[in-house]
Design a protein around this nucleic acid. Structure first.
Lengths: 208, 208
DNA sequence: GCATGACGGAACGGTTCCGTTCCGTTCCAT
DNA sequence: ATGGAACGGAACGGAACCGTTCCGTCATGC
């Protein structure tokens, strides 16, 4: 998981025994890094503030990652791939949608992650490695899940075969993401139900 | 327009005549600032790089604005309020929507603005003044325009009175903004037409 | 035509940050 | 027990940046 954590077993070294990176320290750094990332954003976050918050020497950071960028991208990647994307298959479009929305809401509800997410999306424009990591780790699997739901509904005849899949996928992601990340309005169960009904109607109409 | 541009007419000063801030310099700074903002984002943009790009002394910047933050917020505000929000009133929901989407697309199509927009949204989380400026200058008028269209359609009986106006407004903004700013997919006339039809259907279904 | 003040350029002090290096201490596998 | 390595803490060089100040030059409005 931590790229630079390998024990650096030099060639003829006896390596009689010794100390290993302590997990408590790694956890403290991780938690502090996410907190700082949420409060300040990537550009304003400093390795010094992370170390201070974690009550850790800065050297402990650089013992684990070679740079600030490496640390952040790796933390994001592991955090995000932990929360695997869902692929509901209830057999009916309405309930599939409802479940998908509930899962998205659950993942975005964490205000820490929500604040970080907006910043990372912007940061990705100026950082190709980060953009790539976000795409394969976050965007792509979620779009794939959304697409699978649509394709299933088409196969069952619940949606027209001419459905614009790109537009359809946008409709499954954009309104909810927008509401939670930008508008920051309520997204309770009643809202989710209305949204589900509305998007279902939109999908049926979104054909060429 | 430029907050600190006032002539500083001290009390008894004769102010016999003299030099004024040269417009060419102001224009060069403005253009350079937007370019740097798009390439680097707010946090990475430096006053030095703006001055360098504009082929201008750094003092010329501080003669106009008291700080980096003041410069950026004021530039954004003036740029954005120049492009006034539209309020289509064609008398029919479908054409109103279509016109609104076309206007949004026109405003977001500028790739310079698009890159800046995502960065500013993220920045706003950490900068209350910027958030306030964006809300009153950008978000609020656009949401008001969207709401007006919906209310008109309700009054004409084209949409149910029970329509969730918050959700409806989201639906008018989120999918298109998401596609242009995040997905960066095509948004040609055919897409806009399909989107219009889909959202129209969603609105009719988005009632309590 | 003449004073006023903006101009480009350069330098500066002060701050912040990155990434490295060095301590003396503490943990841990052997 | 013992030794190797990670630990917290501190300091460092180097770089970047903000905002200010000072120049000699040059455009402009009275």
């Amino acid at each position: 998981m931590l790229g630079s954590m390998r024990a650096q077993q030099k060639k003829g070294r006896p390596a009689t025994g010794g100390a290993a990176l302590r997990q408590r320290v790694t956890e403290a750094i991780t938690e502090a890094a996410f907190a700082e990332l949420a409060e300040a954003g990537y550009a304003r976050m400093s390795m010094e503030s992370v170390a201070r918050r974690a009550e850790v020497g800065k050297a402990a950071l650089y013992r684990r990652w070679p740079s600030k960028q490496a640390m952040v991208t790796e933390l994001i990647r592991s955090k995000v791939t932990d929360a695997l994307p869902p692929t509901p298959a209830t057999g009916a479009l309405h309930t599939d949608l409802r479940e998908l929305f509930a899962t998205f809401r659950g993942q975005l509800a964490n205000p820490l992650l929500a604040r970080i997410a907006a910043g990372l999306l912007a940061e990705a424009s100026h950082d190709d490695a980060l953009a790539e990591g976000l795409h394969t780790g976050v965007t792509a699997p979620r779009r794939a899940a959304a697409r699978a739901i649509l394709q299933g509904a088409i196969d069952r005849g619940e949606l027209p075969p001419g459905l614009d899949l790109d537009l359809g996928t946008d409709l499954l992601i954009a309104p909810l993401a927008f509401r939670i990340l930008v508008t920051q309005g309520r997204s309770d169960d009643e809202y989710l139900e209305t949204l589900t009904t509305a998007i279902e109607a939109a999908l049926r109409a979104a054909a060429h």
